[in-house]
Design a protein around this nucleic acid. Structure first.
Lengths: 340, 340
DNA sequence: GTTCATATTCGAAGCGCTTCGATTCCCCTT
DNA sequence: AAGGGGAATCGAAGCGCTTCGAATATGAAC
């Protein structure tokens, strides 16, 4: 193995000088710097991560804790993960993968054993148990999603409440007076999942404010469930002229179910979704974007800022963006491949 | 931070004794062992990963390299990943996440910098560039999927050729004489992806051997593409009584497209798939299982064996398993949530 | 009581890197 | 010409752990 001492000898300098060239923590003359870099190149030197961590108490690793449980939207998770990995590399960090199943002990082990400098917790619920653990850990953490009380934490999330409201504003602006809402599976609401409840709250409040008639129902990821929900919506809202879908998995079925009930999209019912833009693009649907990649980048950057001792806001909410599309929706389509 | 010296003092022993209790590399008397463990507990000691790596030149980390590109089956990847993480933890290892995008330099950096003890490369193609890199790296690696020449490597894969053949055997056994094959998107075949080509080869060879008429076509993940492929298949094979689908993303559409062409499933056409069992279960379809979790476990165990200096077979092929289901298929259904 | 194997445990030397006073060198000022 | 002030570099200590030869304790054997 090539060590920093080998490089130092090869370049005719002290090991500490090589270290300073690499870290930039002290000024090194341009010529020395060049010479050292050449030695590094020609010897194929790579600093030993463990030794570095030991000496500097910085691992340059961030731990990403994924929730791999029922109801997670795989395409969203994957976009998020790739975004996290590539942003982390830009900051010269690596990513340690953990699952929520590893639990509090896992977090304590990694934090205590200097396995990572900080944590990224995905899909945090309203009353998430992990929040308590994070608070007592001495490592910085960034949460994606946010609990009811975000004080003292650092959370990033799409402003789902605004997203729900945005849908109503958009549709009301087009003249719709009776709007349905087809939401996530029941279990997601029962689990006290922040994003689902907030979206619904934003939707309902905005509907009330605009004097729009509305009804909201959860839908399971089965064709018959979706069909039943659509039928119920049409019964409750006979004048329903628009439908907001906040459930990626069943988006493709909704068009068919509406059609099966004699409503054409968009002629009879205007459909819009809260989902990743690629999915909406494929379905040719207007949507409020679910910006997983922006969230990932944002989360890593906040974590790095915290690692550098900067103060970060307790809650960063990304404003919802509307992505407009006109024309005829596809008859169906849940893409299984969202990663380009 | 609690160090091994603190634990040693608390337990009234030498630091080395604590180390031996933890690693089991030398015999320690039962009573001493108990006393040390109690001290570890009460002090909340976690060994410093970097220090350990430095002293022992073992990181207890495995690097998982994921291909996050077009055409990957997200649910399969996710099941694989969770399986890898949990199996790794059983072996007291952590998982470093890398993407194929980090390329050869990324591998060299992590290997050279002692960031991981070994590598797990997922979705290896027939003529994968990464194979060369792995060969010149001094760290052990396990490949999921296998290149044309596996000599000198350690590969794990489902026996896709046997899987393709198995479908034909099953259907021919039921009396079918004319069988269609609806495959992955064209780009997957063009990319020289091993599993797709092998499945097709196994299918075709078996069809020939059994004297079954067959036609195979790729399908893009769009409804209209699937519809077109189904129409073409029915034109080429007017007597087609069975269809094998090796394309998770469009499985849900196939039933509808067949119906749109006047064929009922399973009355007129027997449908079967090569896909994860959960998906087939949801669709109520017979399938040859895609055992992502078994692959993940197997890959980690092989890697650990290599790390311990054991010899491993160049190629481990999992035999395909048939999962039989009878009855009526669902009219549609691409589940967005495969993680239970 | 002494000796010798056996079973445990100790102690010190590093692993490769960062860090921080100390040192050198050079140029500018008085 | 002597002194002072920076800029660049050096040298050594130490991060927390493993490892290996050495030391100690415990019994058994004589």
């Amino acid at each position: 193995m090539v060590t920093i001492v080998d490089v130092a000898k090869h370049a005719g300098v002290a090991p500490s000088t090589v270290s300073y060239v690499l870290t930039g923590k002290r000024p090194i003359s341009a010529q020395t710097s060049v010479r050292v870099r050449e030695s590094i190149q020609s010897l194929g030197y790579h600093p030993h991560a463990g030794a570095r961590a030991l000496a500097s108490s910085r691992t340059n690793v961030l731990a990403l804790v994924l929730p791999l449980r029922e109801g997670v939207q795989l395409p969203v998770v994957m976009r998020f993960v790739t975004s996290v990995v590539s942003t982390a590399r830009e900051q010269d960090m690596d990513v340690l993968l953990m699952t929520a199943a590893q639990g509090a002990d896992g977090l304590r082990r990694v934090a205590g054993g200097a396995g990572a400098d900080g944590f990224l917790l995905m899909d945090v619920g309203l009353d998430d148990e992990r929040v308590q653990v994070v608070r007592e850990l001495d490592r910085p953490a960034v949460l994606i999603g946010h609990p009811a009380a975000a004080a003292g934490l650092t959370c990033v999330d799409l402003d789902f409440e605004a997203a729900g409201a945005r849908c109503v504003e958009h549709l009301a602006g087009l003249g719709h007076r009776s709007i349905g809402f087809l939401g996530a599976p029941g279990v997601v609401y029962a689990r006290n999942t922040g994003y689902a409840q907030r979206t619904l709250a934003g939707f309902s409040t905005a509907a009330m404010r605009r004097g729009v008639v509305s009804t909201a129902l959860p839908a399971e990821p089965r064709y018959d469930s979706v069909h039943a929900v659509v039928r119920t919506l049409l019964r409750e809202l006979p004048q329903m002229s628009a439908l907001v879908v906040h459930n990626e998995a069943v988006l493709g079925w909704v068009v068919e179910c509406l059609r099966a009930e004699g409503r054409r999209v968009p002629d009879d019912v205007t459909l819009m979704a809260i989902c990743p833009d690629e999915l909406a693009e494929r379905m040719r649907l207007t949507c409020v974007r679910l910006p997983a990649d922006v969230l990932g980048r944002c989360a890593v950057e906040l974590l790095v800022a915290k690692l550098n001792g900067q103060k970060t806001p307790a809650l960063t909410l990304l404003p919802p963006e509307l992505s407009s599309r006109t024309g005829r929706a596809f008859p169906s389509g849940i893409p299984g491949k969202l990663i380009p």
